[in-house]
C-alpha cells in the first residue's frame, strides 16, 4: 500500500482534475502572452457569456458518464426546447411561464424515454440517445419548417433570471454564470459528498456490486438521464434568451463538445470516476481554446484541428497518469 500522497505539485498533478487545472492555467497564460486582448474585459465577458451554456449541460453529462452512460441527444434538446417555447408564445399566445413549464415537461419526457429504454430494454445509451438525437432534431426542423423563429424582444422576469446582464466594473456579467456556479456547486455536492454520489460512482464502477448492495441502479440512471435533459433544455433557453432568437439547428454538435469538456476534465468515459471540478476546468479550457485560437490569428476554418489535438493530448495525459497510479 502506498503512503498518503505528499502535498506537492508533483503529487497534485497526478489527480486528473488538478492536472487539468494546471494545463488550463498554462493554456490561458499562453493565449494571454500571445495576444494582449485575450484577458481584456470585453473578451473575458464574451467567454463567460458562452461558458455556462455548454457548461451546464456538461454538469449533467458528468454525473451520467460517472454512472456509466452517456447522452448524445443533449444538443438536439438544447435546440428543440426554445423552439417549442417560443412557438407556443408567439403563435399560440400561451403565457411564457406556462410555455416554460411545457418545455420542462418535454425535457423530463425525453430523459425518461432515454433512461427507461436504456435500463429496462437494455439497449446501449449510445444507440438510444443517437436515435433520440435524430428524432428531436427532426421534430425541431419540422415544426419550424427549418426557419429560425422571429426574434424575441420582450423582456420579463424569466429573461432577466436566465439571461439578464449587468456590469461589475468593466466586466459584463450574465445571470447565467450564477446558474452555472450554483449548479456546479450542487453537482459537486451530489457527486462527492452525498450518498447518491457514492451510488453513482459505484454503479459506473461495478453495476452488479452496487445492485448487490441494494443500490437502485436503474432508478438512479433514469433520473440522471432526466436531469441531463432538463439541464440541456435550461441551457437552450438561456442561449435563446441571450441572443433573442430560437433556431431549430441550435446546439448542433454540442453533444460531442460537452462530452469532450467532461473527459478533458478527468471524468472516465467508461464510468466509475467523475469530477465536477474537472468538468468546470474542462468547460473553461474548451471555451478558452476556441476563443484564444481565433484571437491569435488561426484561421477560423482551421481551429477545430487545434481543438481536436488539444483534447487528444489531454486524454493521453490522463491515460498516462491513470496507468502510473494503478496496479493489478
Amino acid at each position: 500500500m502506498s503512503d498518503t500522497p505528499k502535498p506537492g505539485l508533483a503529487a497534485l498533478i497526478k489527480v486528473p482534475q488538478y492536472a487539468s487545472l494546471v494545463l488550463l492555467v498554462i493554456v490561458l497564460g499562453t493565449f494571454a502572452a500571445l495576444n494582449g486582448d485575450f484577458l481584456s474585459p470585453l473578451n473575458v465577458s464574451n467567454m463567460l457569456a458562452f461558458l455556462p451554456e455548454l457548461g451546464i449541460i456538461a454538469l449533467g453529462m458528468t454525473l451520467l458518464l460517472t454512472a456509466g452512460e452517456f447522452d448524445l441527444s443533449v444538443g438536439a434538446t438544447f435546440g428543440l426546447v426554445p423552439v417549442v417555447v417560443m412557438l407556443l408564445v408567439q403563435n399560440a399566445g400561451v403565457d411564457l411561464g406556462l410555455a416554460l413549464v411545457i418545455g420542462l415537461a418535454i425535457c423530463v419526457l425525453i430523459g425518461l424515454i432515454n433512461g427507461l429504454i436504456v435500463t429496462k430494454i437494455g439497449i446501449s445509451s449510445f444507440l438510444v440517445t443517437l436515435s433520440m438525437l435524430m428524432i428531436i432534431r427532426g421534430a425541431a426542423l419540422y415544426i419550424t419548417q427549418g426557419f429560425p423563429l422571429a426574434s424575441w424582444d420582450q423582456p420579463g422576469i424569466f429573461v432577466t433570471l436566465l439571461a439578464g446582464d449587468f456590469y461589475i466594473g468593466p466586466f459584463r456579467v450574465y445571470a447565467s454564470i450564477f446558474w452555472f456556479a450554483v449548479l456546479s456547486g450542487l453537482a459537486g455536492y451530489l457527486l462527492n459528498r452525498a450518498k447518491i454520489g457514492n451510488w453513482i460512482s459505484a454503479i459506473g464502477s461495478n453495476r452488479n456490486a452496487a445492485v448487490a448492495r441494494g443500490v437502485p441502479a436503474d432508478k438512479v440512471k433514469v433520473w440522471l438521464f432526466v436531469l441531463t435533459s432538463v439541464l440541456a433544455g435550461l441551457a437552450g433557453m438561456i442561449s435563446a434568451f441571450r441572443i433573442s432568437t430560437a433556431s431549430p439547428v441550435a446546439g448542433t454538435g454540442y453533444e460531442l463538445e460537452v462530452i469532450a469538456m467532461v473527459v478533458v476534465g478527468g471524468t472516465a468515459l467508461n464510468g466509475g470516476r467523475g469530477t465536477i471540478l474537472g468538468t468546470v476546468v474542462g468547460a473553461l479550457m474548451l471555451r478558452g481554446i476556441r476563443n484564444g485560437i481565433v484571437l491569435i490569428g488561426v484561421p477560423g476554418l482551421a481551429y477545430n484541428i487545434f481543438v481536436g489535438a488539444v483534447i487528444l493530448g489531454m486524454l493521453m495525459l490522463h491515460a498516462a497518469l491513470q496507468n502510473s497510479g494503478r496496479k493489478g
Binding site: 451510488w199 460512482s201 459505484a202 466509475g272
Partner: peptide, 14 residues
C-alpha cells in the same frame, strides 16, 4: 466491490 471507490466507501456502499 466497486474498484474506483475507496475501501471505506465500499464497506458502507448502500
Amino acid at each position: 466491490l466497486a474498484p474506483d471507490l475507496s475501501i471505506a466507501r465500499n464497506l458502507f456502499l448502500g
